[in-house]
Design a protein around this nucleic acid. Structure first.
Length: 696
DNA sequence: ACATTCTTATA
DNA sequence: ATAAGAATG
C-alpha cells in the first residue's frame, strides 16, 4: 500500500494485536496511531459495572504493552462523545484514514455509523472489519435470504456455510508509529476509591489481557475441552473455558478459538474418540450462542430492552423490590439459587448452568421483570455482555421463538440434585448450610428439626425459608397467565372495535383502550399467597430500575414506583445520561444513510435491516455479493434505531397480536412446534390464532 | 423381537 | 413438559 497514509486504528472491544484486521490494515496502510476512547456515558443505562471496568483497565494495559513492543503505544482519550474525540485525534495527528472493527450492540451500530458519516464528510477514509464473529450477521441467511429466527437453524447454517470462517492472522511484526507526542493521552479512571478494595480480590482469580487469554485458551483446549460433554453440568468444577470475559473485550479472537478447537475435533474424530468430538460440538455451540447474540442484536436491535415476541405483553409481572433484593443477596431460601447469587456477588462469575437456574427462578418463581435481572447481571458480571445477556434472559423468559416454554417452572431443588449432587457448591457459598448433610442440602425446609439443630441451622433466622413455595409459584403463574389472556382478549376486542370505528376517525382515540393502560402506575393488586411483602403486579414489562443511583431516570419509569431508595447496595454511581438517540438523528440515519455512503465508489453498500425488510430480494443479493469484499474493510454495518426497523418480523409491542400473527404466519411451516407452544400459552380464548391457522 | 420404563437434552 | 433414544424385561 502507499506509504504516505497516516491512520488511526480505533480500538474498542478488540483489545489484541493478533488477528486484528483493523490493526493489520492500518499497518499495511502506513503510519499508525492506536487509539482507545473511554466514553462510558455513551452507554447510558448500560454504564459498565465495577468488575467489568476493572477488567477493561488491565486489558488496556496489556494492549499498550504489546503495542509498545511493536514500536508504538496506545493513545487513550477520555470523552463523553467518541466521535468528537475521534475528530480531535484526527486534527492533532493529521491522519487521513480510520480503521476499526465492527460491533453489533445497538449503541455501537448507531455510533459507528455516525462516526463514519461525519468522518467521511471531513474527507477521512473509513475502513471497518469483522473481528468479532465467524460470519457477519448479514452473511447468514435462510434459503429465502431472510435472517434465521431460531438458534439451531442459524447455527446449522453457520456450520455448513460454503466458505469457512476467515483463518486467524498473525500479529504484525512491526508497526510504524505516528508521533504520539502530537496527541497526548488522557489518564483514564476506571475505579473509584470505594471500589479498590473489592477489586483487589479479583486479581487473585482472574488475569485479563490478551496473553492471559491465550493461556486460558491453550489450557482449556489441551485440558478440560475433551471432557466438556461430561463435565459441563457440574456447577462447581473448573471445566468451562473461562474465556467469556476475554472474548467480550476481544482479547482473543473467536476465529482463533474456533480453528484451534476444530483441529482438536478432527484429531479426536480420527482417534475414534466420540465423546471428545461431541465435547467440541457442545463447546462450539456455546460459541455459536455468542454469535447468535450478535446476530439477534443486529437484526433486532431492541432485543436488550424489548421482548422479541409479544405474547407476554399483558403478563402481570410481579413488581416487588423485596423479592428482587432477596434474590440479589442470595436469600431466597433455595440453596442452589442462593449459592449462585452469592458467588456472583463475591466473584463476578457464575457457571452457565447456574445462570440459567438463577434467572429461571427469577422469572418463573418470583415472576419479576426479566430486565431487572438482566441489569443486575450487567452490573455484576465480569463478562457482562449486552448481546449475550439479552439473548439469555429472553430465552429464559420465553420471548424468543425457540425459548423454553413459559409455562414451565424449574425446581431449584431438583436442579440441585443434578448440578450439585454432593452439595459442595452450596456448602462453599452458603457457609450457614455447610454442616447440613447432603440428603437435605437442597431442601433444608424438609429436614427434621434434629438434623437442622445439629447443623446449627434455624430456618427463618440464619437461613431463610423459601421465599415462594414452588407449588404456590405454579398456581400464581397459572393465575397470572389467565389474567394475561383476559387482558389480551380485552385488548383484542378493543383493537377490533378500534378498526371498525377507525374508518372514520382513526387517530383520535388510542388503539388500545383498557383501564390498565391509563392506570398502569397505580395498578396495585393484592397477591394471593403467604408472603409478607406487599406485592404489586403490573401489566407491562418495565424499564430496569436504577440500582445504584438516585439520578438515573428512564422515560418509562413510574413516579409512583420508587425503586431507587430501596436498592442501594453501596455500588458505584451510574451517570445520568440515558442512551436515547435524539429523534432528528434517527431520522437522519434512516433517510440519508444509504445514499451518503453509496456515493463513495470504493465503499460497498450499507447493510440495514430496515432496508432488507423493505426490499428483501435486492438487499439480499447485495449482501451475499459483498460479503467477500467486506473483508477488505469496505462495509460498515449500519443499523438505525428507528421505530420502523424495530423487530419487524417479530411482534411489536405496540401492535401486539396483530403483528404476532403475521410473524407466525410467515414462519409457521418451519416452526410448527413453536407454534404449538405458543398456542398452549394462548389457549384461552385466543381466537386470532385459529384465524391465522385457517388462513395459512 | 417387542413393549415398557428410564434417561437425557432442551437456546 | 416432552420427545427421542437407551436400557430393560
Amino acid at each position: 500500500m502507499s506509504g504516505g497514509g497516516c491512520s488511526i486504528v480505533w480500538f474498542r472491544r478488540d483489545l489484541r494485536v493478533e488477528d486484528n484486521p483493523a490493526l493489520a490494515a492500518g499497518v499495511r496502510a502506513g503510519t499508525v496511531y492506536a487509539v482507545f476512547i473511554w466514553a462510558p456515558e455513551e452507554e447510558g443505562h448500560y454504564y459498565p459495572g465495577r468488575v467489568s471496568r476493572w477488567w477493561l483497565k488491565q486489558s488496556l494495559a496489556y494492549l499498550d504493552s504489546s503495542l509498545r513492543s511493536l514500536g508504538s503505544s496506545l493513545i487513550t482519550k477520555r470523552s463523553t462523545d467518541s466521535v468528537s474525540a475521534l475528530l480531535e485525534v484526527f486534527k492533532s495527528t493529521g491522519a487521513t484514514q480510520l480503521f476499526f472493527n465492527h460491533l453489533y450492540d445497538p449503541l455501537s451500530l448507531v455510533r459507528d455509523y455516525r462516526a463514519k458519516e461525519i468522518l467521511t464528510a471531513q474527507g477521512i477514509v473509513v475502513h471497518s472489519f469483522n473481528a468479532d464473529l465467524l460470519y457477519e450477521p448479514w452473511e447468514v441467511n435462510d434459503a429465502q435470504g431472510r435472517p434465521f429466527t431460531t438458534f439451531s437453524d442459524f447455527w446449522n447454517r453457520c456450520l455448513s456455510m460454503p466458505y469457512d470462517p476467515v483463518a486467524p492472522m498473525l500479529p504484525p511484526k512491526r508497526l510504524i508509529s505516528g508521533d504520539v507526542s502530537r496527541c497526548p493521552s488522557d489518564v483514564l479512571i476506571f475505579e473509584d476509591e470505594s471500589e479498590k478494595g473489592s477489586n483487589a480480590l479479583l486479581s487473585r482469580a482472574w488475569s485479563p489481557g490478551w496473553s492471559n487469554a491465550d493461556k486460558a485458551l491453550t489450557t482449556f483446549v489441551n485440558g478440560p475441552l475433551i471432557e466438556y460433554s461430561v463435565n459441563r453440568r457440574k456447577a462447581d468444577s473448573a471445566t468451562t473455558s473461562f474465556l467469556s470475559p476475554h472474548l467480550h473485550f476481544g482479547e482473543v479472537s473467536v476465529r482463533k478459538v474456533f480453528h484451534l478447537v476444530r483441529i482438536k475435533q478432527v484429531l479426536w474424530a480420527n482417534e475414534g474418540n466420540t465423546s471428545g468430538e461431541e465435547s467440541v460440538n457442545l463447546f462450539l455451540k456455546s460459541i455459536g450462542l455468542r454469535e447468535y447474540s450478535r446476530y439477534m442484536s443486529f437484526n433486532h436491535p431492541y432485543s436488550h430492552e424489548k421482548p422479541l415476541l409479544g405474547h407476554l405483553k399483558f403478563f402481570p409481572w410481579v413488581v416487588d423490590v423485596g423479592y428482587f433484593k432477596a434474590w440479589r443477596q442470595g436469600r431466597t431460601g433455595y440453596p442452589l439459587v442462593d449459592a449462585g447469587m452469592r458467588e456472583l456477588w463475591a466473584t463476578g462469575w457464575l457457571h452457565d448452568r447456574i445462570r440459567v437456574v438463577v434467572s429461571s427462578f427469577f422469572v418463573k418463581v418470583l415472576q419479576l421483570p426479566w430486565r431487572w435481572g438482566m441489569k443486575y447481571f450487567w452490573d455484576t458480571l465480569l463478562d457482562a455482555d449486552l448481546e449475550s445477556d439479552a439473548l439469555g434472559w429472553q430465552y429464559i423468559s420465553g420471548t424468543l421463538p425457540d425459548s423454553r416454554e413459559f409455562d414451565r417452572i424449574d425446581n431449584p431443588q431438583f436442579e440441585g440434585y443434578k448440578f450439585d449432587p454432593n452439595g459442595e457448591y452450596v456448602r462453599r457459598w452458603l457457609p450457614e448450610l455447610a454442616r447440613l448433610p447432603t440428603e437435605w442440602i437442597h431442601h433444608p425446609w424438609n429436614a427434621p428439626e434434629s438434623v437442622l439443630q445439629a447443623a446449627g441451622i434455624e430456618l427463618g433466622s440464619n437461613y431463610p425459608l423459601p421465599l415462594v413455595e414452588i407449588d404456590a409459584a405454579k398456581d400464581r403463574l397459572q393465575a397470572a397467565l389467565s389474567e394475561m389472556w383476559q387482558q389480551e382478549a380485552v385488548s383484542r376486542a378493543a383493537i377490533e372495535n378500534g378498526i371498525e370505528e377507525g374508518l372514520g376517525e382513526s387517530s383520535d382515540s388510542p388503539p388500545i383502550a383498557f383501564p390498565h393502560d391509563i392506570q398502569m402506575e397505580v395498578d396495585h393488586e393484592p397477591i394471593r399467597n403467604n408472603n409478607p411483602t406487599t406485592m404489586v403486579r403490573r401489566h407491562e414489562d418495565q424499564m430496569v430500575p436504577s440500582m445504584t443511583s438516585s439520578l438515573v431516570r428512564v422515560e418509562e419509569e413510574e413516579p409512583s414506583l420508587d425503586l431507587r431508595n430501596s436498592l442501594g447496595d453501596g455500588r458505584p454511581e451510574v451517570p445520568v445520561n440515558i442512551n436515547r438517540i435524539p429523534e432528528p438523528q434517527r431520522e437522519a440515519l434512516n433517510q440519508g444513510g444509504l445514499q451518503t455512503i453509496r456515493n463513495n465508489s470504493s465503499t460497498p453498500p450499507l447493510f440495514s435491516p430496515t432496508l432488507r425488510l423493505q426490499n428483501a430480494e435486492d438487499s439480499t443479493a447485495e449482501s451475499s455479493s459483498s460479503s467477500r469484499r467486506e473483508r477488505d474493510g469496505g462495509i460498515v454495518p449500519v443499523w438505525s434505531p428507528s421505530a420502523s426497523s424495530h423487530s419487524e418480523q417479530f411482534m411489536g409491542e405496540e401492535n401486539g397480536l396483530g403483528r404476532s400473527s403475521s410473524y407466525f404466519q410467515r414462519h409457521s411451516h418451519s416452526q410448527s412446534h413453536q407454534l404449538t407452544n405458543w398456542r398452549r400459552l394462548s389457549q384461552t380464548g385466543t381466537r386470532s390464532w385459529e384465524v391465522e391457522k385457517a388462513a395459512t
